[in-house]
Computed example of a mutant assay.
Amino acid sequence: MSETELPLLSVPRNGVPDVMTEEAELADYIAKLKRGKGPLAVDTERASGFRYTSDAYLVQVRRECAGTALIDPEFLFDLSSLSNAMADVTWVLHAASQDLPCLNRLGMRPKTIFDTELAARLLGDPKVSLGAVVERELGIRLAKEFSAVDWSQRPLPHDWLIYAALDVELLDEVMERQVARLKDAKKLSWAEEEFEYVRTLEPPAPKPHQWRRISRLSELKSGRQLAAARELWRERDRLGQETNTCPSRLLPDRMVISIVKANPRNSRQIKKMSGLRHRRLAENWHDALERARALPADELPSKRGSGNPGLPDHRRWSQSHPEAAERLAAIRAVVAEVGEQHNVPAENMLLPAHQRLLAWVEFPATPAAVRAALDEMGSRSWQIALLSAPLAEALRKL
């Protein structure tokens, strides 16, 4: 049966509940959850690309015999009571690493999770979006249309609420099918380790020198121009935090580069520039340029790079650190081969960052030394068991 011939689930089977905004409603629903059975399906909707924060603007929860709830965190911003009531229940999510940080900020902290996207990766499925996973496991198409909209707007349109409710409609059924497949593939213990790793993963620290990720930054030729781009980035980031607005909506990267190249001498010239969205902020951009102009020469950023702590850019290792580059090539080949043998993507077999770290640090090319290195960087036991011997052999041959 082709994809278009699969039955389409365009609305939740029990309808779309009203958005929950009252504590009394939440208490009633928690009572229903306690009487429910099976795992707890959970999802969130954020306003990525619209807001500065990655907070949830809608939380969807579903459990068999309790039904679906659409919870508005703008009104119900402490959901610890729900979390505590479901402490002994497995929470099933799709791409849990995206949802857990904002759920934690609402007081929702699961003790056990099942991630349907990660399960699909470990099973070697070629497509791992929620729609693709539901089609593969259940033979049903989900209506998916509103993933990239501004979920912070109020009121939320009814069509969006249908989409949100569908996100948790079938997660428990998908989990049941995937558990059976993982058992057949002898990968259930692998999955459980991966789920626990994701559940307990600490949020990454902010990366230094993020301004260097401005697109087309390479078009700027001098340290003074780079300083101007950096000050514009810092100002739009400050304004983004202050107004909870995605910084690129205040000043897109292309306008950062255009302003720097034009080198306007006052805010009036900035206001006249084509493509500027928020002309009321022209004075802010002018002040940022003035700060860059006032910097002494020895404080200008280098064109050569950010000087970030940690590993040097691995893309340049072949020129600057050829031995590390050779080790990285060997490690990548082993990880790809073992991943192919077990039908697991290379990036799930061993994180690319861990591959680079393993190549950078010199140690004896023995299975015991490789096991110790992998364990220290946080690799899981199933990865260590499969990779230690072949990695040691490949490194020993160099």
Rank of each mutant, 00 (worst) to 15 (best):
Q319G: 01
L391C: 06
Q241F: 06
A282I: 02
P203E: 15
R213A: 11
E347W: 04
R213V: 00
R279L: 07
S381V: 10
D287Y: 02
K37F: 08
P73E: 03
P157N: 12
R224E: 14
E137V: 01
A325C: 03
A365I: 05
E393M: 09
Q355L: 11
V179P: 01
L156T: 06
R279V: 12
G36H: 02
A282R: 04
A297L: 13
P345A: 03
E347L: 03
L70A: 11
D253R: 12
P73T: 01
I140R: 11
D72F: 10
A56I: 08
D237N: 06
L226C: 09
L250F: 10
E231I: 07
A330Y: 05
P204C: 02
Q319Y: 12
A262T: 14
F50M: 06
R154I: 09
R154G: 07
K187N: 02
A394D: 03
L170N: 13
A330H: 01
V128F: 09
V92D: 13
W151K: 01
E145S: 14
L358E: 05
R277K: 15
D184R: 14
S388R: 13
E326W: 05
A96N: 05
L387E: 03
R224C: 02
E3F: 08
R121P: 02
A359E: 04
G131T: 11
L156K: 07
E117G: 02
S97V: 06
T44L: 10
M273T: 05
